[in-house]
Write a protein that binds this DNA or RNA. Structure first.
Length: 826
RNA sequence: GCCGGGGUGGUGGAACUGGCAGACACGAUGGACUCAAAAUCCAUUGCGCUCACGCGCGUGCGGGUUCGAAUCCCGCCCCCGGCACCA
């Protein structure tokens, strides 16, 4: 029986370990994937960008998934005739290198480069179509020279500045963190509870770009909805008004921000954040400092956002009063942790009738509640209220605005405040400036010299890079490694030549990764971070692929950098990544892979055992690219042969046998299926539906195998299958293309197959005959029959007639040749 | 609580604008080959009733629109992700 399929003398069995390493070398020798340097190259350009890896060890499953998807896209674009830029590099600075060095005694640099080489070797083994000539590492002085250069441009424009402020301090990593790196009050890296410290630190003025970051998000062509939502939430724009109250006892003006100026007449008290600079002075004046002081001191010791305290409704009266500018009322002032110094102005007007937090505070402290927005259900007794009232209603107890309905009340009150000079429309953002300095060793040094006479002085461009000392003592404790180095920081002031010291902080690694995609366009460029013409030629990126964990941090920062570079006239666009794709996570048995759970599956041993092609296909076929993959469910034990490996084996024999059979003189069913498959796989690839595309290739494989006896069309089907397979299984397809089909050049530089639309439809189709919408019969009909013929066939159907029974057919819906629905009278 | 995404067989998932639900796989069961196993090949596989032809039910739940709904509308439930005293 098997002889039907096999020609024992000819058939070669599929053996990944025999074919894969061979092609790695051939492709590299042939320089297959190098992007053109020629500005006049007529081909369309496509920049396929993958989020560059952090070299923490060998590649893990997450890398496999992400880079497999990115590689399919790059290879597909090559075959479609594009000039493709598909680079690779390493995000090589960062804490883990330093921590590993502390633990094992190796230098951060050695640890980092060893890991990079291991990952590079694994990428090669995977057959990734990278342009290795453009490779970069952010920890190379050649690279961080330009990170520093960019910092100085930001510094010149006032976008990099130093200030003292309360900051997030990770006691474990011994460094400050950006707001974005604090998750639920804990360090994003190590999970330690973050402490609050008052320190002088460097910031990027990203808040200047808040509105543009928000507005331009709407112009992005194709980003996952959840990522856009996260960015919008993070930026956190709210519209409202600023209103200035006056402290009755001192006459000083205190401005507050509110989104509900229409509730100004309902203010019954006023609250300061614990950290507000006026608190101590006002408490001393009001004679309440002894009561207030414990709150203030506790806040200094706990984390920046003390959630527990904020959640409580504790608070202390200050003994002073605020005067409401809209009605001259005098209300008591409090200090309470539920008001945050970080948002708005650090002081609020309290309207207990219409704000739940104010309501709870009022009840706790026996303060009056005054309803100023009457709900549609009628008057409300403030004493009977159990929660704050919703927003809808009509203004009452509000002087000139009584009777004003809620949809227009905010705008009217705001306009009135401006006209009266008592307040103004205002917008508030949740976004804070980006704290970029770190008290650690393994990062790009901040290129600033502190001079007792000249202040903060930029290191001149021609003295960049400010290199890291190789002999640092980077162990934890005490001062940071650069600060404690005996000689490194001592330097002459570039301005006056006097004795000065370098800034001893390094930059957050997110600074490095905010511009690496520009550098890929001009590797080795000596006169700037990139050559503007190269960036204009390649960018914006055609497709950006990477993990959703960067939804806020990396993607927001990169967008910010791009806008600044745009304002500097260095890039012609404002968004670097119009199209973003997030791969799903690879989990195991319902849980994230982790050392502590002991459920980590190492990919490279599986690649050695079953092949890189099987590894890629297993992931890409498992489901939509953006969905999580549970490795236990789709692959099970490492010894279990992957289903896709068996399929590749069948492809291997099918293409061999098909080649033997030659082509039919007339296009037959197999040829038609081949054309249809080209159409469908092309469409699926354009929409990144890899799992569906692969299933279509499986169908074609099955069809080739089951029709081999019938002859005809097999050769073109086998050849086309080989090409369509190329983006997904680069090794297997190459082996078939060159060794079995005898083509001279690589399948990966072959032209993507086209299809003849007249051959993508069948001669006959299955027509469905329904009665009242239920399927009652199916009939094979000619694909080109008209409505009348379709109806005749439906009427002739015995099954349909039986289903109609003795009822009258009142209406016939005909969608020839697909469907006829006989509708009976009711 | 607010925002975003989702809920389809035993499992992963298909079903382009409303038109044959379950493609393609995995798993399972039976069979062929084998001393045996692996590999390979063949068959069956949504649930229920039926010897069978068939019939009924079926895309989280309840309604609605339509000749016809996984798909559109209304109201719920549940799961995942993000944000959260943000004034």
């Amino acid at each position: 029986m098997c002889l039907r399929y096999h020609h024992p003398a000819m058939a070669r069995r599929y053996d990944a370990s025999e074919i894969e390493p061979k092609w790695v070398k051939v492709w590299e020798d042939e320089g297959l994937y190098q992007a053109s340097e020629d500005p006049d190259d007529p081909r369309p350009r496509f920049y396929a960008l993958d989020m560059f890896p952090y070299p923490s060890g060998d590649l893990h499953m997450g890398h496999m998934e992400a880079f497999s998807g990115g590689d399919v896209i790059a290879r597909y674009r090559w075959m479609r005739g594009d000039d493709v830029l598909h680079p690779i590099g390493w995000d090589a600075f960062g804490l883990p290198a330093e921590n590993a060095a502390i633990k094992r005694g190796a230098r951060p640099m050695e640890w980092t480069y060893a890991n990079i080489e291991q990952q590079a070797a694994s990428f090669r083994r995977m057959g990734m179509s990278f342009d290795w000539t453009r490779r970069l590492n952010t920890c190379d002085p050649e690279y961080y020279r330009w990170t520093q250069w960019l910092f100085l441009r930001f510094f010149e424009r006032g976008l990099a500045y130093r200030k003292e402020s309360p900051v997030n301090w990770c006691p474990n990593d011994q460094t400050v963190l950006a707001n974005e790196q604090v998750i639920q009050g804990a360090c994003e890296r190590c999970g330690s509870i973050v402490e609050r410290r008052d320190l002088t630190q460097w910031f990027f003025r990203i808040t200047d770009y808040a509105q543009r970051l928000l507005d331009d998000a709407d112009t992005l062509e194709d980003w996952p909805e959840r990522v856009l939502t996260m960015q919008r939430n993070w930026i956190g724009r709210s519209e409202g008004a600023e209103v200035t109250f006056t402290v009755d006892e001192t006459g000083e003006e205190i401005t507050i921000f509110t989104t509900r100026p229409d509730t100004l007449w309902g203010v019954t008290f006023f609250v300061f954040a614990v950290e507000h600079p006026a608190v101590q002075r006002l408490a001393e004046l009001g004679g309440t400092w002894d009561d207030v002081r414990p709150l203030v001191e506790r806040a200094r010791q706990t984390s920046l956002v003390d959630r527990e305290a904020a959640a409580s409704k504790e608070g202390v009266a200050l003994g002073v009063h605020a005067v409401n500018p809209v009605n001259g009322e005098r209300v008591p002032c409090f200090v309470a942790p539920y008001v945050l110094m970080e948002y708005g102005t650090g002081a609020i007007m309290a309207v207990p009738a219409h704000d739940q937090r104010d309501f709870e505070f009022a009840r706790e402290h026996g303060l009056p509640v005054r309803v100023v927005i009457e709900p549609p259900t009628g008057p409300v007794d403030p004493d009977a209220m159990t929660e704050a009232l919703p927003h809808d209603g009509v203004m009452v107890n509000s002087g000139p605005f009584d009777g004003e309905p809620s949809p227009t009340s905010i705008a009217k009150v705001t306009a009135w405040l401006e006209a009266e000079g008592r307040g103004r429309a205002a917008v508030n953002f949740r976004l804070r400036d980006w704290l970029l300095s770190r008290q650690r060793y393994w990062g790009a040094p901040i290129p600033i010299v502190h001079c007792p006479r000249c202040g903060e002085v930029a290191v001149p461009d021609d003295q960049l890079p400010v290199e890291l000392p190789k002999d640092a003592d980077f162990r934890l404790g005490g001062e940071s490694p650069l600060a404690r180095h005996p000689t490194w920081k001592h330097v002459a002031c570039p301005s006056c030549g006097g004795e000065a010291v370098r800034d001893t902080d390094t930059m957050d690694t997110f600074v490095d990764s905010s511009w690496y995609f520009f550098r890929y366009c001009s590797p080795g460029f000596e006169d700037g971070p990139f050559r503007p013409e190269d960036v204009a030629r390649w960018m914006p990126v055609g497709q950006y692929t990477g993990g959703v964990e960067h939804a806020i941090l990396h993607l927001l920062y990169s967008r910010f950098f791009t806008k600044v570079l745009h304002d500097m006239g260095m890039v012609p666009f404002v968004e670097p990544f119009p199209k973003l794709m997030n791969q799903g996570q690879v989990i195991y048995d319902g849980a994230a892979m982790s050392k502590s759970k002991g459920n980590i599956v190492e990919p490279m041993p599986l690649v050695e055992r079953w092949g890189a092609d099987s590894m890629r296909l297993t992931m890409l076929f498992a489901g939509p690219f953006e969905d999580d993959i549970d490795w236990k469910l789709i692959a099970g034990e490492p010894d279990r042969r992957p289903g896709v490996h068996a399929w590749l084996g069948r492809v291997f024999t099918a293409v061999q046998d098909a080649g033997e059979r030659g082509d039919a003189p007339e296009p037959d069913a197999l040829v038609r299926l081949t054309h249809k498959t080209v159409r469908d796989v092309t469409d699926d690839l354009d929409r990144y539906r890899f799992n569906v595309a692969i299933s279509k290739l499986m169908v074609l494989t099955n069809e080739i195998r089951s029709t081999l006896d019938a002859g005809g069309g097999a050769a073109v089907a086998g050849r086309t299958l080989t090409q369509l397979l190329a983006p997904f299984a680069p090794f297997t397809s190459e082996e078939l293309w060159r060794e079995v089909l005898g083509e001279g050049a690589s399948v990966h530089t072959s032209t993507w197959p086209t299809f003849d639309p007249s051959l993508t439809t069948e001669n006959t189709v299955t027509m469905v005959i329904q009665v009242d919408g239920k399927v009652r019969d199916k009939v094979e009909v000619a694909a080109d029959i008209d409505e009348a013929a379709a109806l005749d066939i439906a009427r002739a159907s015995e099954r349909a007639t039986a289903a109609v029974g003795d009822r009258r057919v009142a209406k016939e819906i005909v969608r020839a040749p697909k469907l006829v629905n006989l509708v009976t009278a009711r």
